[in-house]
């Protein structure tokens, strides 16, 4: 049973959590034209990758162009989704430092869990919508057949995997606290490393043994595999259980671990005077 003071605390945390989502929506609206420009760049970037399959065929290579195009499309779209999640969660520190609001946010009476999960929730909402739009726009530009694709099942896999990505994003979000100048870029490195071992444009079986071992603990491996199974082969959610349960386990570990890492980084920043606008 929840006591009244606990109920009050829970209410405050939920309002704070919603406040983070609300603020990000304000920012998206205020930067709408930049968001559109960035979306066009992502479309162009994705197209350069998916046309590789047709390029190989045009160069005399033999491959299933339809299937390979979809494999590349899914890889590029997941890369974009993961990049967006990391970018938004990393902005927990980086953007606030740039605007100068970091001290006000970090002295406010809200738990770091509500704060970071609020950023994560917004990242997932915005990321899923943007990713679906990106997939639709790029797919419409290609003459590929999706046959019996189960897009709903792919969406479920993406949502489940988002929990793990938020957890890892929390770990990278702390980097701008420790290194104001280079921390954000280190977040991009983490994103790249995660995808290279996860079979972003190729099966993980082509990787060296040590990379294949790393692919087992990367949530992106199961996300990519699950989405490909759902879209290429029409696999249902229940059929993708072998991809879903590792995502649940990794997510269950990544979020508490991410919070612990962030709290540790915040403590370090408070000890060394790094929690301030100018770095």
């Amino acid at each position: 049973m929840i006591r009244p003071e606990q109920g009050g605390a829970l209410r405050r945390e939920l309002i704070g959590f919603a406040g983070i989502v609300e603020r990000n929506m304000y920012l998206i609206r205020r930067f709408a034209w930049w968001e559109l420009a960035w979306f066009l760049y992502t479309v162009a970037n994705t197209l350069t990758i998916v046309f590789i399959a047709k390029g190989i065929e045009a160069g005399g290579g033999h491959l299933d162009v339809n299937r390979t195009t979809i494999v590349l499309l899914i890889g590029a779209v997941i890369w974009s989704y993961l990049g967006l999640i990391f970018e938004i969660v990393t902005e927990t520190v980086a953007w606030e430092r740039w605007e100068g609001t970091i001290e006000y946010t970090f002295m406010a009476p809200i738990s770091r869990a509500s704060h970071l999960l609020g950023m994560g929730a917004f990242a997932v909402i915005y990321g899923v919508l943007r990713t679906a739009l990106l997939f639709a726009v790029v797919a419409a530009s290609l003459s590929v057949s999706f046959g019996n694709a189960d897009f709903a099942a792919a969406g479920v896999v993406l949502l489940i995997s988002s929990v793990s990505f938020i957890g890892i994003g929390m770990m990278t979000a702390v980097l701008p606290l420790i290194s104001p100048e280079k921390g954000t870029q280190l977040g991009f490195i983490a994103q790249g490393l995660l995808l290279v071992v996860s079979g972003v444009y190729y099966p993980v079986t082509v990787l060296p043994d040590w990379m294949q071992w790393l692919s087992v603990i990367s949530p992106a491996t199961y996300t990519l595999e699950g989405c490909r199974n759902a879209i290429l082969d029409g696999a249902s959610v229940s059929q993708m259980w072998p991809d879903i349960w590792p995502l649940l386990v990794i997510g269950g570990i990544a979020v508490p671990l991410g919070l612990a890492v962030f709290r540790r980084g915040e403590r370090y920043a408070k000890q060394h005077g790094r929690l301030k606008r100018s770095g």
Binding site: I15, G16, G19, L27, E99, G100, T101, E103, A108, R277
Partner: peptide, 19 residues
């Protein structure tokens, strides 16, 4: 120290949510 693109109303709402 505010989100410069956001309005006073938006900035104040954001701060108030944390409290």
């Amino acid at each position: 120290s505010f989100f410069k693109r956001m309005s006073p109303m938006e900035n104040l709402s954001y701060s108030a949510r944390f409290y």
